[in-house]
Design a protein around this nucleic acid. Structure first.
Lengths: 146, 146
DNA sequence: TATTGTTATACTCTATAACTATA
DNA sequence: TATAGTTATAGAGTATAACAATA
C-alpha cells in the first residue's frame, strides 16, 4: 500500500505509527502479567505518588473519574494495590501492595528490555533529542473532560 | 502528579503521551466531519490506492479483515466511498466517491492546521529530525524480526 | 486448501449521566 | 455549591470464530 505525501507530511501520523509499534511490543512483553502498558503506568504512578486519589490518577492518565474507577477496581481485584482512608471522608488514598511492588519490578524489567530493543537503532544522543522534541510537541493544553 | 525516573526513561511512554495530545487535537479538528483521524487515514489510503481491497486496507491500518469490514461499512454508509467489482469474484475494489474526495480535502485542511499548530514550537529542521527519528523507532525490531 | 468477504459475538477502553456522601 | 466516589449504561474500536463463495 502506497502512503502518499499527505500522510508523510502529518507529524501526528508519524507519531501514531511509532506509538503503535512501541505499544504492541510492550504489550507482548507484559503478556505474562495480564496487564496492559497503561495499567503498568498506573502502578508506577501510584508507587511514585503514594496516597494519591483516583481523580488525580485519572488526570495523570488523561481519563475521567469513572474510567479511573474501573481501572482501580481491576488493580485492586488483582491484589496489586489497595484503597486506604484518604485526606477526608470522600477520598481514598491509593497504595501499592507488596505483591504489586514485586510484580511491578518484573514488569519494568520486561518493558525496559522491550523499549531498549525497539530503540536500539538510535544513539544515546538521538534518544535524548527524540525525547526532547516529543515533549515539545503539543506542549499547550492538556485536559480531561467529565 | 510526580512522574518518576521509570516513566521518564521509557521512550514508549514519551511517544504515547505525544500521540495522545496530537490525536485529541486532530479529533477535535475533525469534529464537524464526524470522522476519527484513523477513518480519515483510511480515506487517504483508498484515494492513493484506488481499487485496493478491504484486506489490504486493513493490513495498512494494522487491523484485521473483520475490523476493516466494519470501517468500510461506515465509510460506505456516509457516502464517502464505494465497493466496486474487484480483480476476482471474491474481492471488492474500494473507490473514493466525489463526495468523499471533497470531504477529504476539507478534512486534510483542518487536520493540517491542527498538526501545524501542535508542532509550532519546533523549527523546520527539528521537525525533519523528529520525523526521521520516529521512523527509526522500532525499525531495528522489524529488520531482525521474522 | 487458501483467501475474501461476511456475520455474530465478545472484550477493552472510555465516556456520560445520575446518585451519595461528604466538604 | 462543589468535589470524590460510585453505578449503570452506552459507544468506539478491535478481536475471534465460524460460514459461504471463490480461487
Amino acid at each position: 500500500m502506497k502512503q502518499g505525501a499527505d500522510l508523510q507530511s502529518l507529524m501526528g501520523y508519524q507519531i501514531q505509527r511509532a506509538n503503535l509499534r512501541m505499544d504492541a511490543d510492550a504489550r507482548a512483553a507484559l503478556a505474562d502479567y495480564d496487564l496492559s502498558p497503561a495499567k503498568m503506568t498506573a502502578l508506577i504512578l501510584i508507587r511514585d505518588n503514594p496516597g494519591c486519589d483516583q481523580t488525580a490518577l485519572g488526570r495523570a492518565l488523561s481519563i475521567n473519574r469513572s474510567s479511573a474507577m474501573k481501572l482501580v477496581n481491576i488493580l485492586v481485584d488483582k491484589g496489586l494495590i489497595e484503597r486506604r482512608p484518604g485526606r477526608d471522608l470522600r477520598t481514598n488514598a491509593l497504595a501499592l501492595l507488596p505483591h504489586g511492588e514485586s510484580q511491578l519490578k518484573a514488569m519494568l524489567k520486561a518493558v525496559g528490555r522491550s523499549d531498549a530493543r525497539m530503540t536500539a537503532g538510535l544513539s544515546a544522543d538521538e534518544l535524548k533529542t527524540l525525547k526532547d522534541l516529543l515533549e515539545r510537541v503539543g506542549a499547550a493544553d492538556e485536559e480531561t473532560g467529565d
